[in-house]
Amino acid sequence: MNFYLPIAEISINIYLLISIGIGIGFISGLFGIGGGFISSPLLILVGIPPSVAVGTTTVQVFASTFTGVIGHYQKKNIDYQMGLTMVLGGLFGTLAGVKLLNNLKNIGLIDNYLNSIYIILLLSTAIFILYESAKINFLYKNKKLKLHQHSWIHGLPFKFKYRKSKLYISILAPLFIGFFIGMLTGLTGIGGGFILIPCMIYLLGMKTISVIGTSLFNITLVSFVSLILQIYINQNIDFVLAIFLIISSSIGAAIASRVIDRFDQENLKVLFGLLLVTIALFLLYDLFKIPSSMFEINYV
């Protein structure tokens, strides 16, 4: 059964759309990410114009992370101090990212380098996660590990006590991480959860249990701001597409929150790393393969 999407100006199979939404919502809920880095390419793949895919993804990210936030709020897994510090950095980062995006567009570089930046980010994050998991599972299997290793980040000034995470670290670290993720959001339209989570675990030393809730809290607020900006400035959000994605991804995220406790935390990290590698390889293949059409046109 097909349905016409009024802003995307294309008709699409409803069952396909719902399947995509449930899948994204499930992954989002399981790993505590927005799922934007999966949904945007998937929507483009099924024929949604890129600008509408990116814009509508922000609504889906907001809805699926909001569901997750409610779940983690009930379980008291959110570090609001940490989340708000990163959101503050994220707002400035988003503005910087949008500015950088415009500059890259003006000098005609964005289309060639965005995919490459994306692949490097995905692969480096995945390698880092898999290395850390391997270290815990194989190298130090029988050794008692500290909660987190102290690094140069813990020596930075302007220290602040994050009570929920039991951390006493410089406010500059979460601010900078928030700024970096916000810049990525402005540049690529993704929520950045797949980088945010490893940063929170391995750089800040937060506990996995509060990382997912705090990450979702952060992404919900940033995607809320992004949603308003996308509608107001770009007018590229398709209401019908968004509603289908919201319903299906909310269901997927809620199912994930039911089954998440059945997964071992370390296995979850490995799964997440493998997911990132798969997406990176898919994008890499896209750069190598002979294009099906040599020319494309989009009305602006």
């Binding site: 809805a63 569901t67 509608i231 509603i243 919201i246 269901i251 039911r258």
Partner: peptide, 18 residues
Amino acid sequence: LIIFSIIFSLISNLIFRK
């Protein structure tokens, strides 16, 4: 859109809540 997002999130959370 935001109202829809929040309503559907709440509904699905209620339905699938443990």
